[in-house]
Design a protein around this nucleic acid. Sequence first.
DNA 1: GTATCTCCAAATACACTGTATCGCGACAGC
DNA 2: GCTGTCGCGATACAGTGTATTTGGAGATAC
Lengths: 232, 232
Amino acid sequence: MLVWERPEPPERPAPAPLSREAIVRAAVRLADADGLDAVSLRKVAGALDVGPMRLYGYIDTKEELLDLMVDAVYAGIRPEGDGWREVLRSHAETVRRAVHRHEWLADLLGGRPQLGPNTLASGNAVLTGLTDLDLDTAVPAISAVNAYVIGAVRREVGERRAERTSGLDRRQWQAAYGPYLERTFASGRFPAVESMVRDGPHLDAGETFRIGLEFLLDGIAARLSGGGSTPR
Amino acid sequence: MLVWERPEPPERPAPAPLSREAIVRAAVRLADADGLDAVSLRKVAGALDVGPMRLYGYIDTKEELLDLMVDAVYAGIRPEGDGWREVLRSHAETVRRAVHRHEWLADLLGGRPQLGPNTLASGNAVLTGLTDLDLDTAVPAISAVNAYVIGAVRREVGERRAERTSGLDRRQWQAAYGPYLERTFASGRFPAVESMVRDGPHLDAGETFRIGLEFLLDGIAARLSGGGSTPR
DNA sequence: GTATCTCCAAATACACTGTATCGCGACAGC
DNA sequence: GCTGTCGCGATACAGTGTATTTGGAGATAC
């Protein structure tokens, strides 16, 4: 039996009141503050003034706790707007914002299928907003948008962390990796990359995300008007 | 203790010759066989008949080893074909194939910026194949394709693992999660998801990947012909 | 040829991890 | 009031990444 439908054990009034919700909240707080590595069963239990083994009454495994954390965040992920394009865009932006609030989400998304109630409800809402698309288009469209969002936010967070590790802001980061890249480019082995760094557009993360997303939405639109190269 | 009863020091085997390449090869082999969790410095060292601390002469940190592993795989990732569309498609498919050979790659891609020589060379080759695109289009195009690929393969591998965990093949997986979904759908809370599962297209992973990729490429093409909604 | 120094591989140590097992103490049923 | 059950906490175990210590072999100096 899976976590989602397995009932909680009966409330024991005796030692310290506990619930899956409280556990997940504590875990999320830890992860928000110090990253996913800070989420250990001992620390979560400690934050709740409880023995570590106590948690196993509520979850079978740490992975289940992580699943619950993801699902908890999905409680706030609902698309807005009318029409498939607005709905998909809103969904993508909302997921991205959630990842900004909970960077650890980038480490979990796509890692395993999410079938919790909030995640299902989110998917259901997206699908419901896509009634102007036939299912044969809607399903791959959602798939593609989800894949894009997962990859985009993952890279975004990865870069953000790298910057943070080596100082404070983008300038510091360039100070750390810049010299290495300079020397590497000096070898002349990567002229195209070099000219991209030198002459290419310098887009911030948000612009990059939005441009890629519009590419995708344009491609879906192309299929609708019969212009796309994607076979039905 | 006197010499007479003191045992001889253990026969010291001549220290095995070592190199970053050998270390990375051993790590990749371990990861291919048993997943990324099987890559511990102790196990890698053990596979090379060497003390664990010896590795720190070649790498400063385990993360560096993982970076080296990624870069090693990128040695075989080069796009083929002519014209931006073929090149981007080929790049995407090649990365996907690499992930199939090395599932652990899905856990690493996007996790942190990759700036190793092979990764740079791969990026250089892609950029070189995109000379029929102006830089202002090429850069976000590559970004978008990379994001899509990272997310898509990540989800693909995540699902594959979930299936493998709970049995052998897709049928077994449906046997494990199916009943849960049945019961959950019975609640009537997710009608759109339910009808998607019941009536929607059942695409395999390869088709899903390719359709989403073509969406993206179509969207990029739309921008070239001035038809896209993406602002320059 | 002998004494000293240097350097590096290995062993040890530490603080953690997830989780299996054990043992105790409190409540339930008779 | 006794016994049985059950859930909690403590303990235990095998493993992790890495800092520190240790010892032995080769190089160097006289």
